[in-house]
Computed example of a mutant assay.
Amino acid sequence: MKRILSYEINEDYAGLSIQEFLKQQGYSTKVITYVKRTDMGLCIHGERVRTNHILRLGEVLKVSIVEEVGSINIVPTNIPIQIVYEDEDILIINKAADVPIHPSQGNFDNTLANMVAYYFEAQGEKVVFRCINRLDRDTTGLLILAKNMLSGCILSDMMVKREIQREYHAIVSGHIVESGTIDAPIAREVASTILRCVDFENGERAVTHFNRLKITNECSYVALKLETGRTHQIRVHMQYMGHTLLGDSLYGGDKDRIGRQALHSYRLQFKHPITKEILDFIAPIPVDMRKIIE
């Protein structure tokens, strides 16, 4: 995958070194090092320049990010993916249920990484698999993938700074209160590598905001926004509230009406990592959840 970016230097940036300028554009030290080691990675007027070059008004800096090797040990698998949006820097996918994100023992060729590898291989491209917001195997909905190392480092930094707004929709047991905030730390369950629990002594801070959208069939349809991003955060917080997600067998949810946890990544709002345009994506509720809601 090759990405070429051009920057026309205005009064705000004239007098900065290229190193300083790239830092202001969100380039990490790792990406800057990679680019300056790339043949013609940094050019002005067709000539290669160093990162200590002092930029002048009107110069056009061209940055070439060339990644010739994709993710290794990921077998391309011809399984369709639902693409919501794609450009040179990002790929937004509406993930189906029963799809793990990364290959692991027992999931060698049936993961999203395998499907994405096939998608790009079919176009003659090699891409490193960079998933920005991860979802559990049976959680459906919107995911952001970065197509190059620059968009990857900027988006990862945005996640840390909580600049990517995430809204989930879920169906939980019982009638939950109309709205509220759960501020309860989460830790790994003792003697388990998978389970998490609320633990006020050893846990890391976890905050979830929720609003009830509808009450139906002894269940509540809920919208949730994450302020933090702990493993299984929504699932653990709903269990803690006494309203376990339907189908969530890991945390004691009712499995009679749906065969997975009723959780969907419904909406993503964030600034594009390169253009800075405000992006807003919504993925409709999947059929299995919609049947229960209706």
Rank of each mutant, 00 (worst) to 15 (best):
3 R>W: 00
5 L>C: 03
5 L>W: 00
8 E>P: 01
13 Y>G: 06
14 A>K: 15
18 I>P: 07
20 E>D: 12
20 E>H: 03
23 K>N: 03
23 K>T: 04
24 Q>H: 01
25 Q>S: 00
26 G>L: 06
28 S>P: 08
28 S>A: 09
31 V>I: 12
31 V>D: 07
35 V>T: 12
35 V>H: 07
37 R>T: 06
43 C>V: 15
46 G>D: 11
47 E>W: 01
49 V>C: 10
50 R>D: 12
50 R>M: 08
57 L>H: 06
57 L>T: 09
59 E>H: 03
64 S>M: 04
65 I>D: 00
67 E>W: 03
67 E>A: 01
72 I>P: 00
75 V>S: 13
75 V>W: 01
76 P>D: 07
77 T>K: 05
78 N>M: 11
79 I>S: 06
80 P>I: 06
82 Q>Y: 04
86 E>R: 11
91 L>Y: 04
91 L>H: 05
92 I>V: 15
94 N>F: 03
95 K>M: 05
97 A>T: 10
99 V>S: 10
99 V>E: 09
100 P>K: 08
106 G>I: 05
107 N>F: 07
109 D>R: 14
109 D>F: 07
110 N>V: 10
115 M>G: 08
122 A>G: 02
122 A>V: 14
126 K>Q: 11
131 C>H: 11
132 I>L: 06
135 L>R: 10
136 D>Q: 09
136 D>M: 07
136 D>G: 05
139 T>W: 03
141 G>D: 10
142 L>G: 01
145 L>Y: 02
145 L>Q: 05
146 A>P: 06
149 M>W: 00
152 G>S: 14
155 L>I: 12
159 M>S: 04
163 E>H: 04
167 E>M: 13
169 H>P: 00
170 A>N: 06
170 A>F: 02
173 S>F: 03
174 G>S: 04
175 H>E: 15
175 H>I: 14
176 I>M: 13
178 E>Q: 14
182 I>R: 08
184 A>R: 09
188 R>P: 02
189 E>S: 13
192 S>A: 05
195 L>C: 06
195 L>I: 13
197 C>K: 15
204 E>N: 14
205 R>V: 00
206 A>N: 09
208 T>V: 05
211 N>L: 13
214 K>R: 10
215 I>E: 15
216 T>E: 15
217 N>C: 04
221 Y>K: 14
222 V>M: 09
223 A>K: 11
224 L>Q: 03
225 K>V: 11
225 K>Q: 15
226 L>S: 04
226 L>F: 02
228 T>A: 07
236 V>C: 10
236 V>L: 09
240 Y>L: 04
242 G>M: 09
242 G>P: 09
244 T>V: 14
247 G>A: 09
251 Y>V: 10
252 G>P: 09
257 R>K: 15
259 G>V: 13
260 R>C: 09
262 A>T: 11
266 Y>M: 07
271 K>F: 00
274 I>G: 07
277 E>N: 11
277 E>C: 01
278 I>T: 11
279 L>K: 14
281 F>W: 02
284 P>C: 04
285 I>K: 07
285 I>V: 13
286 P>Y: 04
291 K>V: 07
294 E>M: 03
294 E>K: 06
